[in-house]
Amino acid sequence: MRRPLLSYAAVVLLLLAAAYVSATTGSIKLAPGRLLHGLLFGGDEQAAVIRDLRLPRIVVSMLVGAALAVSGVLLQAVMRNPLADAGVIGVSSGAGLVSLVFVTVFPALFFWLPVFAFLGGALACALVYALSWQSGLSPIRLVLIGIAVNATFTGLGQSFNYRGSYAVTSVNQATTSIFTLKTWDDVRSMALYGLVGLLLAALLASWCNLLAMPDRTARNLGLPVVRARLIVSAVAVLLAASATAIGGLIAFVGLLVPHTARILVGSDHRTLIPFSALAGALLLLVADTLGRTLLAPTEIPASILMTVIGGPFFIFLLRKSGRIYGS
C-alpha cells in the first residue's frame, strides 16, 4: 500500500513541477511572483502572453496525454494484451481519417470534429474486432490486424495532403501534434470530451478487472462479457478520438504509461486508471516541453518524440510478451 501512495505523490509533484517549468521556459521568462501576480490581477503583457498562448498548450497536452494513457489501459483490459494502444491498432488513425473526410466535405461542421473522430475510431475498432475473430479473440492476432488497419488508415489520411484543399489544410493544422496554436477553446473542447471519458473509465474499473480474466471466469462471476467489452471499448475510443481531434496523431502514450504504471501501482484498475491519467499527462507535457525548447525556435512535434521513445519500447514488450495479458 505504501508504494502506490509514494508513486501517486511522486507523479503529482513531478506533474506540478513540469507544468511550472513549461510555463516559465521559452522566449518569455518571468519570475514566479511576477507570473502569479500577472495571471491573477493582469496588467502584465508578458504574463498575458503566457496566459493566452502557453497555458492552453500546457493544459491541452496534459488532457491529451491523460486521455491516451487511460485509453490504452482500457484497450489492454478489453483485449487482454499489453501491446494494445489506440495508436498501434488503428483507432487514432481511423479517427483522424474520418475527421478529415467529414470536415473536407462539410467544412462548416468543424466544431463537431471530436464527434467525427469518435465515429472514425469506432469504425477502426470494429474492423479490428471483426477481422480478428476466429472462434474467439487471439491477443496476438488483434495486434497484428490492428497494425494493418492502422497502416491502411494512415495511408488514406496522408493521401489527403495532395488534394490542395484549404479545408484539408486547415484540418491538418488543427490536428497536428504541435500544440503551438491551441487556445482556451481547445481546452474547453478537450475537457468536455476527455473528462467525461476519464470519469466513465474510473466508473468501469471493476469491469476492467474482470475483463482481464478469461471470458468463462468473468462470466461465472456475473459479468455480461460482451456488453462490458463493447462499453469499455466505446469509452476507450471516445478518449482516443477526442485526443486525436484536439491533439493530433500521437502513438505509444497508451503503451508506455500503462506498462510503467502496473509496475508502480499494480494491476488493480481502481488505482491503475487514475495513476495512468496523471502519468500520461506528465509524459506528454514533458515531451511537448522538450520539443518546444530543445531546438528553439524550431519545434519538434510531440508525436515524433513519442515515436522515437515508443518504437524501441514496443519491440521490447513484443519480445517479452510470451504470455497473454491477464493470465
Rank of each mutant, 00 (worst) to 15 (best):
P4S: 08
L5F: 13
S7C: 10
A9R: 05
A10F: 03
Y20P: 00
S22E: 03
A23Y: 00
T24I: 07
T25E: 09
T25V: 13
K29T: 12
A31Y: 02
A31Q: 14
G33V: 06
R34K: 14
L35C: 10
G38A: 11
L39C: 06
E45N: 02
E45G: 00
A48C: 01
V49S: 05
I50A: 09
I50H: 04
L53P: 03
V59S: 04
L63A: 10
L68W: 00
L68G: 06
L68K: 06
V70F: 03
V70S: 03
L75E: 05
Q76T: 12
A77S: 15
V78G: 06
V78Y: 00
V78K: 09
R80L: 13
L83E: 09
A84E: 00
A86P: 14
G87C: 13
V91R: 02
S92I: 05
G94H: 09
S99C: 07
L100N: 02
V101G: 08
F102M: 15
L109T: 12
F110S: 12
F110H: 11
W112L: 15
V115R: 01
F116A: 05
A117D: 04
G121V: 12
A124E: 00
C125E: 15
C125H: 10
L127G: 03
L131V: 11
L131K: 13
L131P: 12
W133F: 14
S135D: 14
G136H: 11
L137D: 02
S138T: 03
I145P: 14
I147Q: 10
N150A: 15
T152P: 02
T154E: 08
G157F: 00
S159N: 14
N161W: 03
G164K: 02
S165T: 03
Y166S: 13
Q173V: 06
F179E: 08
T180K: 11
T180H: 13
T183E: 12
T183F: 07
W184K: 07
D186P: 08
S189Q: 13
S189L: 15
S189G: 08
L199G: 14
L199K: 04
L200W: 00
L203I: 06
D215P: 02
T217H: 08
L223W: 00
P224V: 04
V226W: 00
I231K: 04
V232Q: 08
S233A: 11
A236C: 08
V237G: 02
L239E: 11
L239R: 08
S242D: 02
I246T: 11
G247Y: 00
I250M: 09
A251E: 02
L255Y: 01
L256Q: 06
T260L: 15
T260H: 03
A261T: 13
S267R: 03
D268R: 02
L272S: 03
L272Q: 01
L272R: 05
P274Y: 11
F275W: 09
A277I: 12
A277T: 11
G280D: 07
L282T: 13
L285A: 08
V286H: 01
D288L: 10
T289K: 04
T289D: 07
L290W: 02
L290V: 14
T293S: 15
L294H: 10
A296V: 07
P297Q: 12
E299I: 14
P301H: 14
S303L: 08
L305Y: 05
V308K: 08
V308N: 07
I309K: 00
P312F: 01
F313V: 04
F313A: 06
I315Q: 02
I315L: 15
I324L: 07
